[in-house]
Design a protein around this nucleic acid. Structure first.
Length: 409
RNA sequence: CGGGCUGUAGUAUACCGGUAGUACGCAUGCAUGGGGUGCAUGUAGACCGGGUUCAAUUCCCGGCAGCCCGACCA
């Protein structure tokens, strides 16, 4: 893409109403726009990142048999009334026209919706198990939206729901989802702790969260320095500096951001909607459900919190909006190299703007595309200066060599 | 939802009870051309409502909005 065609621009100063680093950098670089507290629009660059994260989530969900779908966002009140969740305080209720009372709510989660849908198709043990997911906007009236993309009132979520004949079968799938989730976070460049936690509104039993260590995190988690033990402070009996209950190693207290969670739901939702199946002996049973969520837009914020320096963002290549940022300086062959890169299939942002070199360098650092290519009076024909965003030294190579570097790293 | 802070050009900010200044941006021109380049000219502003006052952007009250701390957070 030609940068001169990008309708967004970068800003030198951070908006005064954003303190969170992820919101400051993403706003300055033109990835997001804040429409109101906790509500952001994703601009062209930001949407590219969202699509990349979504693609990773899709691949991993498909790999464990998840069937992608898209559920409604407007929910008649009978759904939440069926499970006693109509009066949960973060639900946005909708009043239509001259109505006095809300008769619907906008989507905050979809257990009820999919449970009801499943009643039409699931009748036999032969129909189970199955799992379906979507990537969709969730609305939750957070009393206090904060930290940029980390706690919003409107956000993108990948939510997966699974349906089983038994608790045993549910837990087998639960473990598969946990592995798939670990893959998603690893591919996004994040180290996520698989953390035992309390379930809150969704379930009575304990659940698991994926927690990424960060000073801006809202959760306190105890992790073992030697094994994989991790527990949320809300359920843990461990203590900072104490012994790990699993291996005896030292336990460390960390601040962390929850990027995903998985819940065994039991039969609560199946009972509410009459979702049952007949087993081999002809006996009826309630379907056992699980639900699993990843905050796609929150993930974008967390990645920025982890991958940045004083000059701007430094995206991991798996989620970067482009792989290469070509800066066309005077005396170089910007148009020619841009065409060559495109032909080679390199996702490239080409800075063809009438701007000073300093401005282009500063913008490249702020936007944070993994590879920076420069063509100008100092580079000879068929060569470019190449540098990774995370490196400080550049070198000059042939365009072909640059393409090889970009496509293999 | 409790507590605190803040609302001034597009952005970031300054001053002031007598109608506002700077920087960046944007526009035009000239110069410049490897780390937000220089000069000139131009452009553009007091959140809303009420009160006090001869006079309010400034002080007071209310609203709205934003941020921070706490509570909450499926």
């Amino acid at each position: 893409m030609r940068q001169s065609h990008l309708f967004t621009k970068t800003e030198k100063s951070a908006p005064k109403d954003e303190v969170a680093l992820n919101a400051q950098l993403l706003t300055r670089a033109g990835y997001i726009y804040k429409n109101s507290a906790g509500v952001y629009s994703f601009l062209p660059l930001g949407w590219q990142v969202i699509k990349n994260i979504s693609a990773i989530a899709r691949e991993e969900m498909d790999a464990i048999g998840g069937q992608e779908m898209l559920m409604s966002a407007l929910h008649d009140k009978h759904y939440l009334q069926a499970t006693g969740r109509w009066d949960v305080d973060v639900v946005y209720k909708v009043i239509a026209g001259d109505d006095k009372e809300p008769a619907a709510n906008i989507s905050w989660t979809h257990e009820e919706i999919l449970a009801e849908i499943a009643t039409k198709y699931i009748h036999s043990y032969k129909d189970l198990p199955f799992a379906a997911y979507q990537i969709q906007t969730k609305f939750r009236h957070e009393p206090r939206a904060k930290s940029g993309l980390l706690r919003g009132r409107e956000f993108l979520m990948k939510d997966l729901y699974s349906f089983h004949v038994s608790e045993d079968d549910l837990y087998r799938y639960y473990d598969r989802v946990a592995k798939a989730y670990a893959n998603v976070f690893a591919r996004c460049g994040l180290k996520a702790y698989y953390t035992l936690a309390a379930g809150g509104e969704f379930t009575v039993s304990n659940t698991h969260e994926f927690q990424v260590e960060s000073p801006v995190g809202e959760d306190t988690v105890y992790v073992c320095t030697q094994c994989e033990y991790a527990e949320n402070k809300e359920v843990s009996k461990a203590a900072d500096g104490g012994a790990c209950p699993k291996c005896g190693g030292a336990v460390r207290e960390i601040k962390a951001v929850e990027v995903g969670n998985i819940f065994p739901l039991g039969t609560k939702y199946a009972k509410a909607f009459g979702l049952a199946f007949t087993d081999e002996k002809g006996e009826a049973h309630d379907v056992v459900m699980g639900s699993y969520g990843i905050g796609i837009s929150r993930l974008m914020g967390v990645i920025v919190e982890q991958y940045h320096d004083e000059k701007g963002i430094a995206w991991p290549s798996a989620v970067a909006p482009f792989h290469a940022h070509l800066l066309g300086l005077r005396g170089g062959d910007g148009d020619g190299i841009y065409a060559t890169l495109q032909k080679a299939g390199v996702k490239v942002l080409y800075d063809d703007r009438e701007a000073t070199p300093g401005e282009k360098f500063a913008d490249a650092d702020l936007i944070g595309i993994p590879w920076r290519l420069v063509t100008g009076a100092k580079t000879g024909a068929g060569t470019v200066e190449i540098k990774r965003r995370i490196d400080s030294e550049s070198r000059t190579v042939s365009v072909e060599e640059a393409i090889t570097l970009i496509t293999t790293h």
